[in-house]
Design a protein around this nucleic acid. Sequence first.
DNA 1: GCGGATCAC
DNA 2: TATGGTGATCCGC
Length: 557
Amino acid sequence: MASSTDSDSALRPESTLMKSFVGVADIKKGYEGVDRDKIARTVYEASKDSLYFNHQQKRDQALTEKCNALIERKRCMEESDTSSQLRHADKVVARLKDNRDLSQSTVHIDCDAFYASVEQNDRPELKDVPFAVGDTVVAACNYIARKTGCRAGMVIAVAKKMCPNLTIVKPNHDRYREVMAKICQLMQKYDPGYEICGTDEAYLNITKYCGEFDVKPWDVVESLRKAIRHETGIAVAAGIAANIQLAKISSTFIKPDGQYQLPSEPDIIMAFVKDLPVRKVTGVGYTLDRQLASIGVATCEDIFSQRQFLRDLFGDRLFEFLLEVYLGCGRTELRATLEQQKKSASIERTFKETSALDIIERNLRTVCEDVETKLKELNRAGQTLTVKVKMNDFESYSKQTKLPRAISSAHDIFQHSLPFVKATLVDKPHQVCRLLGVRLTQLASKDYTLGAAFHRMVQKSKNSDPEYLPWAREKGRSMPAGKRKLGGNVENRELAPRKKTSNFATKSPARNSVATPQSPNEMVRCPICDQNQPPDNVSFNQHLDFCLSLSEIQRYS
DNA sequence: GCGGATCAC
DNA sequence: TATGGTGATCCGC
């Protein structure tokens, strides 16, 4: 194992490290006939002395060890009796077969080299030159560039080495969103419950549409593709199959342009999947592919022949997933994009490496402000905070904490994040920081956060009883000047600016001073503002915090 | 609940 | 001239 780090063996074209440099060029369209060794060598030469290389090497070695452990465990199993595992696997196969639903028509739409296509349409002069869209890292490149080995994920400096006359185009995300919105508009006609996946892919279930208008899936997809082509100039590949996993594979079959329909018959599906490399299946990435390969699973058919080992080696979830892959099972219900609600909001940013605390603090503050902006757009606040710090050596550390209540202001996020960042820096004294990230999860509707409660109260006081606010009642004051605009805004904005109200949310007053109601159906009267409140613990305590802090605001305004 | 990993795009 | 950002999920503890 240790010998795998020897420089000569690592340099061999077949070494796993070199394979990792080839990256997605291994499986993507446009790289047929491209010299993979050349890609690997160029990447290697360009990065061999960097800290990034060391990190990659470390990861590669860890994965190699994991694979060796799998091989060893499989050998142990082979020496013992695996008949019960085999029986179990067959039982699961039978169950999955029984539950298989082949009645639906699902479609996968895949925009060809999306960013590159959009740019090429907007700037015809790019048509005949190799170019890549990206900013330090290639996000997408056209087919001319792919021929030279340029690929997504490659550092632009390296891509230029592979392709000296490569033109670089800065990404224009607003424009891509605009084009995608147009495409969505067209898809809506066939399935309003369509599901967007990333920036350039989508799934549809057109079963209902086909039934209603008595049309064939093939024809529906043909007109959809034509419409997209006509309206946006983008070529799309489409796969039609019984579920979205199969539809996706089908579309990559026909890429970059065209459509492919996989008949919904068990035998045909199984034959279609049989020789497919598992790496082509969504959900099987680089690492899982290597682990599977180490125990003799390269194609979907191999999953079946090794089925008695998979549960012990990979766990229940993965075991069942793999059997589904073998059978060609998949999802047919879509998660409608229009109704989907986000589960997290995060920002992470790489910057010029530094160990200066003041700069790091400034960067953290910026990150927190951007998270605040994002939460505002979602009208959400998050109760679980995750802070991430990546060091110079590309090792990253994260800390997750569940907060006593949901937060959303940059100030609050910053206050909670800073201690962890500081602790990490102290922990790794010789290291330099290169990235900071902040994520909020457990997103709660902003209706139950302080800012929104404030907003509602202001609305109420404006619309009905001007004497409603406690401080107004007591002292006859109007709204603090800085907050006045809140009342008139359409969107639920959070309290801003921060300065005057800094202890509004940070210093949280005693939260457990009042007994909470027992009966779930009764409203409960707040002892401070005298208004009825919803009876559940969480929102009641939040309301209480809020009312208590109003007196603070009053003091400072 | 927490931390690390993986995966997709 | 030098390795991204966002969101989701899973595993093991």
